[in-house]
Design a protein around this nucleic acid. Sequence first.
DNA 1: GCGACAG
DNA 2: ATCTTGTCGC
Length: 225
Amino acid sequence: MPRALHRWNLDIAAARAVQSRLADRVETQDRLGPVHTVAGVDCGFEHNGTVTRAAIIVKSWPGLETVGSALARVPTTFPYVPGYLSFREMPAILAAFETLDTLPDLLLCDGQGIAHPRRLGIACHLGLWLDRPAIGVGKSRLVGEFDEPGPAKGDRSALRHNGANIGTVLRTRDNVRPLFVSPGHRVSTETATQWVLDCATRYRLPEPVHAADRLASSRGHRKPG
DNA sequence: GCGACAG
DNA sequence: ATCTTGTCGC
């Protein structure tokens, strides 16, 4: 991974051009190997947002036991602009991945996959960069229209945008706000949806992402009660 | 011009 | 994302 050869603090116009170019390389068909490890990826911020904190939690599959983790803190160089999240969080995320000796078999990223204006959400960007199967798990919608899914765990509806199916609005627990699942790379919408549901055991967020969320967030450090 | 807008 | 305790409901 030619990390040193890349600059991430581009202007919006340049970032947009990069997204459009990379979007063509995203694979929406299943191309996964045996999945023995599933990782959750998320970011948090410290010091008034000047530092980005990326967290990765690697879980075994099946079993969902934590078998690895990584944490990296990097100076924040890109502002939060809807549609350009990867340029803000990728530097820290890649720094965290570099401390892992083995890449996970499947990545669950907090954020969208192809459910993005130019079909290049952070899950796509990360999946392409690491050449790993990746799934986007958003807590809210960026783009797309959908019908409210039923109230029970497993209920779902299609997320569409510009006449295309870009993901699934999935209920991962009874009576909780649904998640927005979309392919990141090398995973189909159907498979992505199934993996998120299979990893959703006790929280709204799938286990790996929930764990990464806690590690990335400053509140995850508070003492248990 | 106006509203929407991942984390 | 982050600042933040208790409280209401399934």
